[in-house]
Simulated scan of single mutants.
Amino acid sequence: MKPLVSAFNAYTCIVISVFAIVILSAIGSMFASGHHTMMGSTEDPKDGGKVAAAVFGAVIVYAIFLLFCSSQAFLHARQHRSGEIALR
């Protein structure tokens, strides 16, 4: 099976996805618990649970990106080990 994206793009996507999962999980957990930094102002949303659900939905999307990019990086590593000649 051949990779669909380049190795650079696959590894970049892995780094960005992991960073987004960590940051969005922290933000979502603060909304879910009603933390005062997220829910304390008059301009903040009234229902933190709905916002947390949307943020955790984004975490799931980034987790899918992470799985795809990890599989692409694995295919690049396997292709490199097999000794194929890359024409660039």
Rank of each mutant, 00 (worst) to 15 (best):
F65N: 14
I23F: 06
V18C: 12
N9A: 11
I27Q: 02
V22D: 06
L4N: 07
C69T: 00
I60T: 05
A63T: 15
Y11G: 00
M39S: 15
V61G: 01
G57D: 05
D47S: 09
A52D: 01
H36P: 11
L87K: 13
K46A: 15
T42F: 00
D47K: 07
F31H: 07
V55Q: 00
A7L: 10
F56P: 02
A77L: 12
V22G: 08
G83P: 07
M38P: 06
G49Y: 02
G48W: 03
V51W: 03
F56D: 05
A20Y: 01
A73C: 07
S17N: 10
G34L: 06
P3T: 06
I23G: 00
M39D: 03
S6H: 09
A73G: 14
Y62N: 10
L4G: 11
L87C: 03
E84T: 13
G40Q: 07
I21D: 00
I23M: 06
M30Q: 13
I16H: 02
H80F: 10
L75S: 05
R78F: 07
I64R: 01
H80M: 08
P45M: 03
K2W: 08
E84Q: 12
F68C: 02
I85C: 06
S6W: 12
I21T: 03
A32C: 08
V59C: 06
C13Y: 03
S41D: 12
Q72I: 15
R78E: 08
